[in-house]
Nucleic acid binder design. Structure first.
Lengths: 338, 338
DNA sequence: TTGAAAGCGTTACCAA
DNA sequence: TTGGTAACGCTTTCAA
């Protein structure tokens, strides 16, 4: 069978404990012994059994990352940054799971992470409505720390790291107001969730600064923040001959949906209508018309979440840090003065 | 501490074995006992320890999936299909890892998967050159089966599931020849790797059918199959005033890079130059000019790889199945008769 | 600096 | 149908 610690011990005529100690680089073992052990381990093709190790220590060397949608490069990049940083800097591995924007799935994932005895969990929240996230607290019963990334659930108190969405939305709307637009539609999910209501606050702030009243009927709610729903919502607006100066969305993929609907109805962008997205993922720059958007520093966001998680793993879950990263308005061709 | 099987046994005054049997739905235990055990387990908040379970059974309930690039929605979709199918149909979990198109990283991932004692591994190969993949065979020493998805390494014999790339490329090139194009450039990685040379074979077949000689200097090699390198290669071609009818690429992201370079040099597409991608990921349809491409049935590909893997897990690694899924040419606006 | 042995939570075999 | 017990491969405590 596979070579294990006891095999190395037998081969070297020393005890299992010494081998274990040596393999883990403890300096209480003689330097020569240590080297010898490591060499023979390599020679014999020893591969540590993470399961046994985890069982003995009652926790694994993995942290779990929950993503709502892995087909969106926004989360793909997030996954990349989180796992690279976790591995390079903290020497832990990352295991991913995809919630598909479904609270039930998210719950199952958490149960599974508990079973796997992950050392910590980072959650990228689902972006649609769900009132009860208490299942997340199960993690605490197992002393598993968790932090949020990209947003957070208001009913769960823990560290979070995200872009300052309110500020980003504020800058974008201010810019559109500067261009002379007034009828600015906003396509997003339920205003109950953080990613939406923070953006709405930014929108309102920009309007408020100029004493322009906000018409909340311009906030259009989509069930899911994807291409199809943004496309459908835009068609609806066009067909009902709504008076619009601009449409902004909560992510770039939705902006693509808006573009598609406009193209099909021969609406010229940006001449007749300005369109803007959010996130600055690659295809906002390569779309039919390069899209004005708001850049998020995903790398910074990722590091914030990882750092705070490991901080909590060291000092306990009751930590209420927050990392809020400044966004950057990216102006492209999809927006213009009327 | 966390509730475990022995706690349930104690509470119910029965043995650990019975509890374990009941929890695993074995019908040798009395139906009532079984229900009782399950109920109390739930009541006590029991969460099975996957580590202990894996140790006892000497394998975990996870399969490992290696992706070369998680920021590409092509692989994001693949990950989604593989994990959903694995979970729903086989009741195993999927753990992802990202090789970043780097053989060293891939090797490390495999070592880690071995440590985690995954039940099986599915590898989506890196698309650039690497002569030695023998580290993959380490899996066999641990009786861990593996299959390939989307492509395969020629030096490793095992089951693979992929789209018929040769056929897809053949159809695309045939279509371009039909449009009257002759100077068809192909941007890809090294012709040593399967994803490239299968496509080249399709290209050659289309030319061969019409007795048109193939000029292999039209195959441009990029180190990595991404936006930047395709952009750079196209610029190179444009600047050197190459006589071109069409540029095709090995994936849609590269086609976007081509588009970008052409736009910057005021080259009209498709009037002056036809461009085509491959994969049919979402942004080929929403690009500046919607891109002609070849659709891959990712769901079918994913299922093939998963099915064969579980087949091997049952019947042994020496299995040489292959699933080759038929592609579909998707014609959009980026290609036209000159 | 090293060794012996207990313990982590589960499964699986054999007996009852 | 149930119970007792060894075993999985590692860490860790205590003693030497």
């Amino acid at each position: 069978m596979n070579v294990k610690i006891s095999d190395i011990a037998k081969a070297l005529n020393i005890s299992k404990s010494t081998v274990s100690l040596a393999l883990n680089d403890k300096d209480i073992v003689n330097a020569e012994t240590r080297q010898l052990v490591k060499d023979t381990a390599k020679k014999m093709g020893y591969a540590p059994n993470a399961l046994a190790k985890g069982l003995a220590k009652n926790k694994s060397n993995n942290i779990g990352l929950i993503l709502p949608d892995i087909t969106n490069p926004y989360y793909g990049n997030l996954a990349k940054y989180v796992s690279e940083y976790t591995e390079d800097y903290y020497n832990y591995n990352t295991i991913f799971a995809v919630s598909n924007d479904n609270p039930q799935t998210e719950k199952k994932i958490i149960e599974n992470f508990i079973s796997e005895r992950v050392a910590g969990v980072i959650i990228a929240p689902i972006t649609n409505k769900c009132k009860d996230h208490s299942y997340i607290k199960n993690l605490e019963r197992y002393n598993i720390c968790y932090s949020f990334v990209t947003a957070y659930y208001t009913d769960i108190k823990t560290a979070y790291s995200m872009s300052d969405l309110e500020e980003g939305s504020y800058q974008l709307v201010k810019y559109l107001l500067d261009l002379g637009h007034r009828n600015i539609y906003f396509l997003a999910t339920s205003s109950d969730v953080v990613p939406t209501y923070t953006r709405i606050r930014g929108y309102e702030k920009a309007f408020g600064e100029r004493n322009i009243p906000v018409d909340s009927s311009k906030f259009i709610e989509c069930k899911i923040a994807n291409f199809e729903q943004a496309y459908a919502a835009t068609q609806q607006l066009i067909v009902s001959k709504t008076n619009m100066d601009a449409i902004i969305t909560m992510n770039d993929i939705m902006a693509l949906g808006v573009l598609r609907a406009c193209t099909e109805h021969d609406i010229n962008i940006p001449e007749t209508l300005s369109v803007a997205g959010y996130d600055n993922v690659i295809y906002s720059s390569v779309a039919t018309i390069p899209i004005t958007t708001v850049h998020q520093d995903l790398q910074g966001i990722s590091r914030g979440a990882v750092d705070m998680l490991f901080d909590m793993m060291k000092n306990g879950q009751d930590y209420e840090g927050a990392v809020l990263i400044q966004p950057e308005l990216i102006i492209r061709r999809s927006t213009a003065r009327r």
